[in-house]
Design a protein around this nucleic acid. Structure first.
Lengths: 223, 223
DNA sequence: AGATGTGAAAGTTTTCACAGCC
DNA sequence: GGCTGTGAAAACTTTCACATCT
């Protein structure tokens, strides 16, 4: 616990100390603020109060202020937050100022939809590799990207060409693919196969489970 | 607060009183248990202890018991839960014993992937209508389902042909489509467009936001 | 003995409310 | 006067631990 002086310099203390990882819900809200700030920027707003940001995001203004103050003192009392500046700060926090190399595994319908998803490149996520196990697909290309065998993943990862892997394969091969990604040194995975998949510590996996989403709707409908 | 006797008949009291809606995380876990119970059923297991179920679901056994006890006393002390029975109970809670009519709005890449998604019909979600605004698409068919104009939604809804709407349109038309769905009387929406969308009370909306999922990965990667 | 169901405790997240700065 | 930043309070969620039942 060394290094933290008793002085009131919170900014310095915050920068010097290890900041605990934000919770998943904080990060989710941050993503929301980021997008909304883009809208405000397009509307040529210079500054914005937490109240207005909160309104659009569908949360309380205290929540907005707490979320932001976790990462620094971005606002100015009496004024609010500078729209462009805050957006840039959040981009930095979320890692959206970088170029991320993404490998998509699974060249089926879902894979194709993800490959064509326009928002990804806008946020710095570039699907530069498409992999599959089906010999019929290997060698064909999507918009200039040639589909290669999933066995190539370790090589691509070793050459530093993959930051994030998207798993869009059928459920029965999902765990195998995830294991391959992990053993290749990948540390971030977006999984579309239903069910929890085992990953060691240090590997972040996010699940997009369409069945669960639908089930929560049917739960809402069934009286 | 009438009707609840001081007797120990908890089952009766539970059935008589209004049970508050479960939280989103409870419902999510329930979906997970449901799938895992299907696996256990395939393995021909008769009964299962919360401990084993918890292990596969990646939660604590106390969590499993708390989640389940919320809806009734499904287990037998000393024995565990009957696999088939519990699965059936959860199906009832989540509304998976019914046939749900789903209308898909947006016949693009993503729409097509969702239309082809094999898990949906298995859970009782049947995409029986596909709608779009593009005149070039209207009249063409996907696997026997003819694409109709989005303006048909109120009529389909009025005829009781739509329980759930999936919104897979570009972000700029998402709010319009959601408004149309709401005014048509739809009460459950699965939205794939980025950003929060306004819905009145009584309408449940779930968001699948791919950008947010990716951003939470990049947050994990960026030191 | 074995495993559920559940109050009580612990932990986490959100809201409140206001001191402090612009 | 306006609005942030933040401790304290409230609400919610998860875990503990054990009485209770088979």
């Amino acid at each position: 616990m060394r290094g933290a002086r008793a002085s009131g310099d919170d900014e310095r203390v915050k920068a010097a100390l290890y900041i605990e990882r934000a919770s998943a819900s904080t990060v989710t809200r941050l993503s929301g603020y980021y997008r909304i700030l883009g809208e405000f920027e397009a509307e040529n707003l210079e500054t914005i109060a937490s109240e207005r940001l909160a309104e659009r995001a569908g949360v309380s203004s205290a929540q907005v202020r707490k979320d932001l103050s976790r990462f620094g003192n971005f606002g100015r009392r009496g004024l609010g937050y500078n729209v462009a500046q805050l957006r840039q700060r959040i981009a930095g926090i979320l890692g959206l100022t970088q170029h991320w190399n993404v490998a998509l595994i699974g060249a089926g319908n879902l894979g194709h939809a993800l490959f064509s998803y326009k928002e990804f490149p806008k946020q710095g996520f570039h699907i530069e590799h498409v992999l599959d196990a089906d010999p019929a697909k290997i060698g064909t290309a999507w918009n200039g990207v040639t589909i290669v065998h999933v066995g190539e993943l370790p090589r691509l990862a070793r050459d530093g060409k993959v930051d994030i892997v998207i798993v869009a394969v059928p459920v029965h091969s999902a765990q195998t693919v995830v294991d391959l990604a992990v053993s290749s040194g990948i540390r971030a995975i977006l999984n579309f196969a239903p069910g929890k998949l085992a990953t060691p510590d240090g590997v972040t996996i996010r699940h997009v489970d369409l069945s669960i989403a639908m089930e929560s709707l049917s739960y809402a409908l069934v009286k």
